[in-house]
Structures are given as structure tokens and as C-alpha cells.
Write a protein that binds this DNA or RNA. Structure first.
Lengths: 110, 110
DNA sequence: TATTAAGATTACTTTTCGTAACTAATGTAT
DNA sequence: ATACATTAGTTACGAAAAGTAATCTTAATA
């Protein structure tokens, strides 16, 4: 039925998961705490939690616990995660060149 | 609230739309008819139709009608669509390097 | 014991999916 | 002329997933 390379298909499905791209973009800037990401991204805590768990399971994100007061938990990209940088950079370049201001303005219409 | 570049966010949301990546991958190989894509991709006609309309609206895909018997309709990438090639190529490279065979085998588990 | 941060859980609403049946346009066979 | 193929979708609708906000949990202070 379908002629796709299973690795590619798996990667595509993973990267197409809603908000995963934006989370990767956040983490490419450096280690982030849960609440920082929650503030920066347009998603709720429940979803952020789900996605971080998914990315951790996939070996893309690492969760580091620092036993301070109060406890600090930081999320960082693994090597596998950092290797996605070119994808994100390409998307940024494409967006700069091809997404027009009008398109963004007309978000709420239709 | 959020600190993201709106162009980037828009691009990310668009490219994160389920199946959009796989459709782009199909079309990077050249012009495709509706039924060919339906056969190659693991999605239903309804969704394929939805996504093609979305991509046409976004100026990424072009729809060409040939009045033969029976009518032939081909989908191709616009310049804006072709400009996404690096993104897809990067994802392919990443998948080759980082998606292991075991991960694919264990699709149905958990 | 009251507070604070991280994040999990719950209860509930809204969107999106997927299947299968249906429509439209056009050419062919009878 | 009428009935049937073929391609390319569209519609309807129940099922599944995604979304939100508010409420718990845990652990270490002050």
C-alpha cells in the first residue's frame, strides 16, 4: 500500500506531533524549566507535560533534577535532539522568506 | 505571554499539521494525482482532500487540471513548496541516523 | 504548619479523524 | 438516448484525540 521508508515515516510523524517543533525550538536556545516553557509557548501545562514525556521516551529530551530549594528541574536536548537543529533552522529560513505579514495578520478570519 | 516569532510559529504550525510532511515528501518526487497519493500514503481521501486544500490555500501546492478522458488532475509544488525541500531532506538524514530499527519494530507496543 | 515550585491528575468541552456511502463531470458502449 | 465507467472528490456521522482550567501531590524550608 504505502511506499514510505519506515524510519522517515516515523520521524515525520514524531516531528509532526503538535507543538513538538516549538518545544525543540525552545530547547535549542538552552536548558529550560517547565514553567519557562509554559510561559513562552501557547500551550497548556497538560500538553507540555505530555509532549515532554513523549520526547523523553524518544531520547530527544533529557530531564535533569537539581535537589535545591525548591527543587529545580531542567529540560535539555540530548545529542539526538540537538541533531534536529538543521531542521529547525531550515524552517526558520523558510518562514522568513515565504510567510508574509498579511498571512499572519489574517489568522482569525474565514 | 509567548516570545515566538509569528512567522516561525505559523510555519511550524503549518508543517506540524498531520500528514503535511508526508504529502510534501510525495510531491517533491514530482507531480502526483489524487489517487496516487491516496495509494501511497496511509491516509483517507477525506483527509488528503482537506490537506491539499490547505496547502493550495497556503500557496504551497498547485492544482492542474487536464481535460482528458478521464479527467486528470495533477498536484505539484509551487516555488514556495519546493523551497521546503531542505527541511524534508534534513528530516530524512536525521531519521537515517537516529531512528533505530527497534523503535520501528516496537510500533504496536505499550 | 503555611508556603512554594514542579508537574500530575481530574473532569469536562471542543476538534479532528476515519470509514463508507454519495455526488459530479465526462466519455464510452448499446 | 440511456446506462455504465472512471477520476476526483464530498458528506454525514460516530469515535477518538486534543484542548482547558482547576485541583491534587510531593518535598523542602521558613
Amino acid at each position: 500500500m504505502n511506499q514510505l521508508c519506515p524510519r522517515f515515516e516515523k520521524a515525520m510523524v514524531l516531528l509532526s506531533t503538535r507543538w513538538v517543533g516549538l518545544i525543540l525550538f525552545e530547547l535549542l536556545k538552552g536548558a529550560k524549566r517547565f514553567s519557562e516553557m509554559e510561559a513562552d509557548l501557547p500551550i497548556s501545562g497538560r500538553l507540555l507535560s505530555d509532549r515532554l514525556k513523549l520526547l523523553e521516551k524518544e531520547g530527544i529530551v533529557e530531564r535533569n533534577i537539581y535537589s535545591e530549594f525548591p527543587v529545580r528541574i531542567e529540560y535539555t536536548l540530548s545529542e539526538k535532539g540537538k541533531a534536529l537543529e538543521p531542521v529547525i533552522k531550515d524552517i526558520q529560513r523558510w518562514a522568513e522568506e515565504y510567510i508574509s505579514a498579511e498571512e499572519i495578520a489574517s489568522k482569525e478570519e474565514e
